[in-house]
C-alpha cells in the first residue's frame, strides 16, 4: 500500500474539527439514549466499569494509530499485549520481582516485539499486513508454549487494589494513565521532529526519503511504540482483572482499528488524530456498556460494532471525496486505484 501523495491530502483543520464535533455529538446522543432507556447506565458502578474499559480501549486504539501513521498496520497488537501480560505475571508471581520492575520489563518486551515487527518489515520490504499476521501467530504460539496457557492468579494484592481504586467516585486511575499517554502522543506528533518524521514517512515515503527523512527508522520506531502501547493496554487489563490471563488480547483486532478510524486517522498514513482516537474509543466503550446495561447482551454487540465501523468509514469516505473536489479538481484516479484506494 503505497498511495500517491495527492489522493489523500491531510484533512484541513476545519474538516478535522467537524469530524471530532460530529463524533462527540453521536456520543452525546448515545449517552442520552442509554441514560433514558436504562438509568443504571449512569450509576457510579457502571461509570467506573466504563472508565476502566475506556482506558484499555483508548490505549489499544493508540497502538494501532501510531502504525497507521506510517501507512502500515499491526495485526499483532493482541499477541504482543498478551505476551507482555504473561511476562508480567511470570515476573511477579514466579520470580517475585517488585511490581514496578516487572511492569517495566513487560513494557520493554512489548517494545522489543514491536521493534522486531518493524525491523522485519523494513528489512524485507514485505507488506506489514503479512508480517504482523505471521508474527501475531508466532508471538501467541510462543507465549502459549512457554506459559502452557496457565493463568497467573496469585499476583501481589496491590495489583487488584489499584485496579479497584476510584477517584472522585467513579474515575479509574487507569483512565488518567491512558489520557496521559494521549497527551504524550499529542506532543510527539505535533511538536517533535520524530513525530513529524513518522507522519512524513506515512504521507509519502518517497518524498520523505528524498527530503532526508530516515523512513525505515521512522517505521521501526512507530512499530516499537505500537508494541509498547499494546503492552501497556495488556498491563491495564492485568490491573483490572487482578490476574494475568492467556486469553487477553484475542478480541482486540476490531476495537484497535475502530477507535482510530472512527476518530479520523487515515489508513493510508500521514495523519493521526489523538483526540479522535480517544473519542472513537469512547463511542465503542459507550456502545458496549450501553448494550450491556440494556441487556441486549454481547451477542448483538458485534453486529452493532461492525455496522458502526461501516457507517463511519463511509461518512469519512464521502468527506474525503468532498475535500478532494475542493482541492482544485486534481486528477487523483491513477494514484488511488493503484493504492487500493484510501479509506
Amino acid at each position: 500500500m503505497t498511495p500517491s501523495s495527492d489522493s489523500r491530502a491531510r484533512p484541513s483543520w476545519l474538516a478535522e474539527q467537524s469530524n471530532l464535533i460530529g463524533l462527540a455529538a453521536i456520543i452525546i446522543l448515545f449517552w442520552f439514549l442509554f441514560t433514558s432507556l436504562a438509568p443504571g447506565f449512569v450509576s457510579s458502578f457502571n461509570l467506573f466499569a466504563l472508565s476502566r474499559s475506556l482506558a484499555v480501549d483508548i490505549v489499544i486504539g493508540f497502538s494501532t494509530m501510531v502504525v497507521l501513521a506510517t501507512g502500515g498496520m499491526n495485526l499483532a497488537i493482541g499477541s504482543i499485549g498478551v505476551c507482555a501480560v504473561m511476562a508480567s505475571g511470570y515476573l511477579m508471581q514466579t520470580i517475585g520481582l517488585p511490581i514496578p520492575v516487572a511492569m517495566a520489563l513487560a513494557l520493554l518486551l512489548g517494545a522489543f516485539l514491536g521493534w522486531l515487527n518493524g525491523f522485519v518489515i523494513v528489512r524485507s520490504g514485505v507488506n506489514s499486513f503479512i508480517i504482523t499476521l505471521a508474527s501475531a501467530s508466532l508471538f501467541l504460539g510462543g507465549m502459549l508454549i512457554l506459559s502452557k496457557a496457565q493463568t497467573f492468579n496469585a499476583l501481589p494484592p496491590e495489583i487488584a487494589a489499584f485496579g479497584r481504586m476510584r477517584w472522585g467516585g467513579f474515575v479509574s486511575p487507569l483512565l488518567l494513565v491512558a489520557l496521559a499517554i494521549g497527551a504524550a502522543l499529542v506532543v510527539l506528533f505535533r511538536f517533535t521532529a520524530l513525530g513529524r518524521e513518522i507522519l512524513a514517512a506515512g504521507a509519502n515515503p518517497r518524498a520523505a526519503e528524498l527530503s532526508g527523512v530516515p523512513v525505515g527508522r521512522a517505521i521501526i520506531i512507530a512499530h516499537t511504540l505500537s508494541g509498547a502501547l499494546a503492552a501497556s493496554a495488556g498491563l491495564m487489563l492485568v490491573f483490572r482483572l487482578g490476574a494475568a490471563m492467556p486469553s487477553i488480547g484475542q478480541d482486540w483486532l476490531l476495537p484497535s482499528f475502530l477507535a482510530p478510524v472512527l476518530g479520523g486517522t487515515l489508513l493510508a498514513g500521514g495523519f493521526v488524530s489523538v483526540v479522535g482516537t480517544i473519542l472513537g474509543a469512547l463511542l465503542v466503550t459507550t456502545l458496549r456498556s450501553g448494550l450491556l446495561v440494556m441487556q441486549i447482551g454481547n451477542f448483538w454487540l458485534q453486529l452493532f460494532l461492525g455496522l458502526i465501523l461501516l457507517a463511519a468509514v463511509m461518512i469519512d469516505r464521502y468527506r474525503g471525496v468532498y475535500a478532494e473536489r475542493r482541492s482544485l479538481g486534481r486528477k487523483t484516479n491513477l494514484g488511488r486505484k493503484e493504492s487500493g484506494r484510501r479509506a
Partner: peptide
C-alpha cells in the same frame, strides 16, 4: 465506496459474527 477492502471486511466480519451469535 472505494474504501480499503481490509476495513470493509473487518467491519462485515464483525457484523456476520454478530448475526451468527
Amino acid at each position: 465506496t472505494g474504501i480499503n477492502g481490509f476495513i470493509i471486511t473487518l467491519a462485515t466480519a464483525s457484523a456476520f459474527t454478530g448475526i451468527n451469535l
